[in-house]
């Protein structure tokens, strides 16, 4: 009797908890889990957008994927963009954060100057940079001509188009990462720096051996955030180059869009989407194993 009342109280407690989770879970199920499962299911089928009939294909889509040179190009571009842009933006952000952490005068102005691009919609940012990059009248070319570099149609040159988008990404996100790192830097106890200075350790070594290890949890977090923000490359490609020239800026998200929406081939597009999920999931797993264990938690 007594045990049953205690038990029923616990069941009631759990029931309430599930009830509280229900709204979130319902939407997560509909718009996160179900799409993933469905994407896997679709990848074994021939699915045409807007057609309810689906035909079993087995592994055919995957075979096609392996032979699809454009897929490999898009995959390579995605990997290139991710692997270069994130470290670049984070390095940039770290240097900015360290510079601003030294109680620089005009701190608030600097902070805003580097952070405001985060507030700008990707479509607006993309457009502005199309203008900045334009061949004859673009300010970038105007500036470069002053030091004797000839006019380049950056976004129309298959060698430069993707790097040009990457430079823009660094401009857009460094300020965000800087801000997060700045918050972490402020938590490093200053007596650690003082002790290191008394030991005659140089500024560079202080950065490498004291600052970096102590902010490593945040650095790790920033890497993950950076990875998740790299999904936004779709917006830039869509607005700035539409994948061109000659698919030099075609990335997985955009290629999925082309296959699914333009060619209405949802089956193949789902196969591509699965590769994207695996790529991001795998990258996070790699980062977690490489960095996750080495992270130093300050007093936690």
């Amino acid at each position: 009797m007594v045990i049953s009342t205690a038990l029923s109280a616990r069941i009631r407690e759990a029931g309430l908890a599930y009830l509280l989770l229900l709204p979130s879970l319902a939407f997560l199920a509909a718009f996160t889990y179900w799409p993933i499962l469905r994407s896997i299911w679709f990848s074994f089928h021939d699915v045409v957008l807007g057609d309810s009939k689906i035909i079993w294909l087995g592994l055919e889509n995957y075979q096609r994927l392996l032979e699809d040179r454009l897929f490999w190009k898009a995959f390579g571009n995605t990997a290139f963009y991710t692997v270069i842009t994130i470290p670049l933006a984070i390095t940039c952000a770290l240097l900015l954060a360290v510079a601003l952490d030294s109680k620089l005068r005009g701190m608030a102005i600097y902070r805003s100057a580097f952070f405001y691009p985060v507030m700008i919609p990707s479509v607006a940012a993309g457009m502005v940079w199309v203008f900045l990059y334009s061949a004859s009248y673009g300010p970038i070319n105007k500036g470069l001509s002053l030091i004797g570099i000839p006019d380049t149609a950056w976004l129309y040159d298959s060698k430069w188009a993707l790097p040009a988008i990457m430079v823009m990404s660094v401009w857009k996100y460094s300020g965000y990462f800087m801000l997060i790192l700045l918050a972490a830097l402020k938590l490093v106890p200053s007596d650690l720096y003082e002790a290191a200075r008394l030991d005659g350790i140089s500024a560079w070594n202080r950065l490498i051996h004291i600052t970096l290890p102590l902010i490593s949890p945040t650095l790790y977090f920033v890497i993950i955030i950076g990875l998740l923000h790299s999904y936004q490359i779709f917006d830039y490609v869509y607005v700035m180059t539409h994948g061109g020239p000659a698919d030099a800026t075609n990335v997985l998200t955009f290629y999925i869009y082309q296959n699914g929406f333009q060619y209405q081939d949802v089956g193949y597009a789902s196969t591509l989407a699965n590769v994207l999920l695996l790529f991001v999931g795998g990258l996070i797993a790699v980062i977690a194993t490489v960095f996750g264990r080495r992270v130093h938690y300050l007093g936690r």
Partner: peptide, 20 residues
């Protein structure tokens, strides 16, 4: 499962989400 959504936002599953 909740954290899974951080890894795979709508921007990663837009195709099948569109179908839904």
């Amino acid at each position: 499962l909740f954290l899974l959504q951080i890894m795979f936002p709508i921007y990663a599953t837009f195709l099948t989400n569109f179908v839904t």
